[in-house]
Design a protein around this nucleic acid. Structure first.
Lengths: 211, 211
DNA sequence: ACTTGAACGGAACGATCCGTTCCGCTAGTC
DNA sequence: GACTAGCGGAACGGATCGTTCCGTTCAAGT
């Protein structure tokens, strides 16, 4: 069943994806962007958008679920590696590459979470723990490192951003490798100070923010 | 000359510092905060604020200059270390500790830069280069690392933030040490990909942003 | 004691932004 | 050729925020 190039239905169906892609691009760039910016990026009017989503919040929730899906897909693919370190590195690189962090955590707090989102997020967390624990068991991570640290690494690399999008990707790759090096046992010059972020600390960003 | 506890002049002088400190705290927490938030944090009315600064922009510029001053002070202090690595580490730790990055780069682009600010910033850059080059000459940094990378490290660690301020400081210390480990020669498993950010890329954030 | 005015608190104003709705048009479809 | 799903974009209403303004207070000067 190939979609015909013309016809109203086909056009509308194509718009579905165009709009979602535009929303992803825009909100990744600036999480607080107005709805009109998404419409402009997609080359459509605002009404095309509101025909599909009842509100901005619903669009954001959809995007967030989409991000979690990607996260889970990346993690599952990474798990296929035989070597625990390769799996770990593939997971980290993949999450950064797809900019999944911007799509999830940065959007969290801008809408009231749904139960479905909670389940997806729980699944993502579990997958991450599996990959991490395997790496720990294999002794390829430095002492004292915990899963929460990896989340913070995502957060930190995601903060790398310059005007040019392609260059941003390049730079993120650079610091991903830097941090992957940092996380190996050979890098440790002393125990890390303080304690890794707890699940509660990482979870607090899901509650709606005041500002 | 001790300031008397009472008297209008004394009260006003005390307010000067209270307001600046409040502004620092508020804008470090959220760079786009309204003026009223600063007034509230300082426990004064908005008019006390506008008596001292002609506009919000002027307040931000003052704060930014203050941040650059701190940066320069930290760098000068770090330079006193005999050991090049100690100097480098002290510089990085100090900048993170004082959260100078939030005070400068995060505020940049929200106001039109003044020439004086440009000079301060140039001085800060030069100081950083001196410390960095000394470390490179001593061979205590991994191959391929450049000064621009250090700025990005500041940016990344500054992105670490949780609700509790004290805990944020702790966590930032943790990742500062992680990244300091990463920049040492022992950590290098392979050359870093891509190239370090150029001066132009780092400078572009000083031009006023559209959003 | 009385006046004065610097300093201030906070309400009010006006501009801007943004989510959402609505109206008129277009172009497939029957 | 009439009908209507889908759409573009102007218009609306609410919220936010920088700035101004007015009434009040209280230390200093007489």
């Amino acid at each position: 069943m190939t979609t015909p190039l013309s016809g109203r239905k086909a056009q509308a169906a194509r718009n579905d994806e165009t709009i979602l892609a535009a929303a992803r691009a825009v909100f990744m760039r600036s999480p607080g962007a107005p709805v009109a910016a998404v419409a402009q990026e997609a080359g459509v009017g605002v009404s095309a958008l509101y025909r599909r989503y009842a509100s901005k919040e619903e669009l954001l929730a959809t995007l967030c679920a989409d991000g979690l899906d990607r996260f889970i897909a990346v993690a599952r693919a990474a798990q296929q590696h035989d070597d625990p370190w390769d799996a770990f590195a593939a997971w980290v690189r993949g999450v950064i590459e797809e900019d999944v962090h911007s799509l999830t955590v940065h959007l969290a707090g801008t809408f009231t979470p749904t139960p479905a989102l909670g389940e997806l997020s729980q699944q993502a967390i579990t997958l991450g723990e599996e990959i991490f624990d395997r790496a720990v068991a294999a002794g390829v991570l430095r002492d004292g490192l915990e899963v929460g640290d990896v989340t913070m690494i995502f957060e930190q690399v995601t903060a790398v951003r310059v005007a040019d999008a392609a260059r941003t990707t390049e730079l993120r790759r650079r610091y991903t490798e830097l941090l992957l090096d940092a996380v190996r046992p050979a890098a440790a010059s002393a125990p890390l100070p303080a304690s890794a972020p707890t699940g509660a600390e990482l979870g607090e960003r899901w509650v709606p923010r005041d500002r």
